[in-house]
Design a binder for these strands. Structure first.
Length: 293
DNA sequence: AGGCAGGTGGCCA
DNA sequence: TGGCCACCTGCC
């Protein structure tokens, strides 16, 4: 008898394509989804949950859950933000006056921003400094295996910040975190001393939360914006990374602009859902590079 | 073999 | 503010 439930349909008012689902789950927002060739599905881990997702033949999205974890369907619906008005959000972006944005929106129909657990988003993006997605995933996987709770045989949650605080910097370095280990350890110690801090930041307005986040060791503007966008549903957060700098130079002729100026441009040009728009142009550029290499 | 990768913080003009 | 550099590690 299988430990997983039967495949059940997810109610999607704003459908994915197969490529967009892959981009959403494994395109640099989240680092804990893997495609299982044998099961032909995506398997992901967040909080204390595990779920599987795949398309059916008639192009509806199906999910399956461990039978031992009855609340997972609700948690997945929240994680994927099934209730959010994504179609309206896309329409509100300035695609009518921005041909490049229009192209990117059409290239990834259904792309959405996940609502990851905020503490996990902070941790994952602390690992992201000068690393590519596959390597960030390896770091997260090693932290989970070594320090996190085992949810199913061989499947581990990311460590909580308390669990991280209990580890030494040397322990963390041994997981291949490199210079990020020091930042993670120092941040873990601060968060252990202020147990309410992350939930306060998550529920604060964007600007307030960002100011508090960048005061933590190893968290600058970019990582703060990623954590707020992908872990706190602050869709106005506009991460300025090396990719976006290149995109804005190449597609908008903003050569020589500083990151602060580009951040300002993003907020003004794309509007209150600037981070949502950012994800489309980021994905578009990444896909183009992948297809060229 | 050496440079670079979804950055940050420190130091100096 | 703006530029430069060290910082771990692994992959091209």
């Amino acid at each position: 008898m299988s430990a997983w439930t039967a495949w059940t349909p997810l109610s999607l008012s704003h459908p994915f394509t197969e490529q967009t689902l892959a981009e959403t789950l494994n395109g640099g927002q989240a680092f804990r989804w893997n495609y299982h060739e044998t099961e032909s599905c995506w398997q992901g881990i967040w909080d204390q949950y595990v779920a599987r997702i795949r398309f059916s033949d008639n192009n509806t999205l199906l999910a399956s859950y461990p039978k031992s974890s009855p609340y997972t369907p609700n948690a997945l619906a929240n994680y994927l933000r099934l209730d959010f008005a994504w179609t309206t959000a896309v329409d509100s972006l300035p695609w009518r006056s921005d041909a490049h944005l229009d192209t990117a929106l059409k290239a990834f129909p259904g792309l959405r921003i996940l609502k990851q657990p905020f503490p996990e988003a902070v941790l994952c993006f602390l690992c992201s400094a000068t690393k590519q997605i596959p390597q960030i995933k390896v770091m997260c996987e090693r932290m989970a295996e070594t320090l996190g709770n085992e949810l199913l045989p061989g499947i581990h949650a990311l460590p909580t910040w308390d669990q991280l605080a209990a580890a030494s910097e040397t322990d963390l370095r041994s997981l291949g975190l490199g210079f990020r280990a020091k930042n993670i350890k120092k941040t873990a110690d601060i968060l252990a001393a202020q147990p309410e801090l992350l939930s306060q930041i998550e529920s604060a307005p964007y600007e307030t939360g960002k100011t508090q986040l960048v005061s933590l060791p190893g968290i600058g503007e970019k990582i703060a914006d990623c954590a707020l966008l992908f872990g706190a549903a602050k869709l106005e957060a506009f991460p300025v990374d090396t990719w976006i700098i290149k995109v804005l130079e190449k597609r908008y002729q903003l050569t020589g602009w500083s990151p602060a100026q580009l951040s300002q441009f993003g907020r003004v040009h794309y509007g209150p859902l600037a981070g949502f728009a950012q994800q489309f142009i980021f994905s578009y550029e990444r896909a183009e590079k992948t297809s060229n290499s």
